[in-house]
């Protein structure tokens, strides 16, 4: 059984990512590149995304900013097809991850989501132990090798900077952790399945400033191995941690550039108005 899984995992790696199993100096290639072409989204009759072309480079942190209801979360959730479950969802256009269109008919959505981790707005640990939360993604893939699971859980918790705080209490319920710890646990849970892209939907909006700072620092480290997209309402956060920033307004991508450029010298008036707090 274990052997079969091993092979399966390798297959996935080789089809999806052209990189060796072990990440060291060659990390640059591990993360994925995202490309969207003419993406439009409707919820029933409401047009939520009005045609977006965008390229997101590997090993970068990209921030999506814009007022509430501008489509940035919807757009983010296209990358792991989380909108599929929304009633009345319709989509047009192409989204390619490492060259493959993820909205092709044959795409295995579960496999896709294994490659593209997501962290949600509010910490949402399962009502299970800390260990079981992190091991969840491995278990649903059918991995039964205890040693492998233990290793991955430990590694993920270390990556999420939570290991030192919980290593003696792995059997404790995840719900007993503080909000900030819960969110780092959710990040660890995502990292344990070794994705190549991390989607973060306002991951710190429900947290206090100290927890927020911890998570921002964590995100900064994770850039070395992952392509990260973060939706945020917090301008300082976007300017602190991201390499690129995309400004969305009413379902359109208004401006997308290096973060420094967006925050110091935006091309568009709307962008400037938003980041200087004149609306939103």
């Amino acid at each position: 059984m274990a052997k079969e899984i091993e092979i399966t995992m390798e297959n996935i790696k080789s089809t999806k990512i052209d990189s060796p199993e072990i990440v060291d100096e060659s990390t640059q290639q591990n993360a994925s590149r995202i490309e969207t072409k003419g993406v439009k989204v409707w919820y029933d009759d409401f047009m939520a995304i009005k045609g977006i072309d965008m390229v997101i480079k590997p090993n970068t942190i990209t921030a999506f900013i814009g007022p509430s209801g501008c489509g940035k979360s919807t757009f983010l959730r296209l990358f792991n097809r989380m909108n599929d479950y929304v009633e009345g969802f319709k989509m047009e256009g192409k989204i390619k991850i490492d060259g493959d269109n993820i909205y092709k008919k044959k795409v295995n959505v579960e496999q896709l989501r294994k490659e593209i981790g997501m962290v949600f707005q509010k910490p949402n640990p399962f009502p299970k132990s800390i260990f079981d939360n992190v091991a969840y993604g491995l278990q649903i893939q059918g991995i039964k090798d205890k040693k492998l699971i233990n290793e991955r859980v430990e590694k993920a918790l270390k990556q999420a900077d939570l290991w030192e705080e919980v290593k003696d209490n792995l059997k404790k319920s995840a719900l007993a952790l503080s909000g900030g710890q819960q969110q780092r646990l959710c990040i660890a849970r995502t990292l344990a399945v070794q994705p190549s892209i991390l989607l973060m939907d306002e991951p710190t909006s429900a947290l206090d400033p100290i927890s927020t700072a911890k998570i921002e620092e964590l995100i900064h480290h994770l850039k070395e191995e992952y392509t990260i997209i973060i939706v945020t309402h917090n301008m300082q956060q976007a300017s602190r941690i991201s390499d690129y920033t995309a400004f969305f307004y009413l379902g359109e991508l208004i401006e997308y550039d290096k973060t420094r450029k967006i925050f110091t010298n935006p091309e568009k008036k709307q962008t400037e108005n938003y980041i200087t707090g004149r609306f939103g």
Binding site: E4, T8, E110, Q141
Partner: peptide, 9 residues
């Protein structure tokens, strides 16, 4: 059938 296919099935 690999695990992902099995789960889908």
């Amino acid at each position: 059938m690999n695990n992902l296919q099995k789960n889908r099935f």
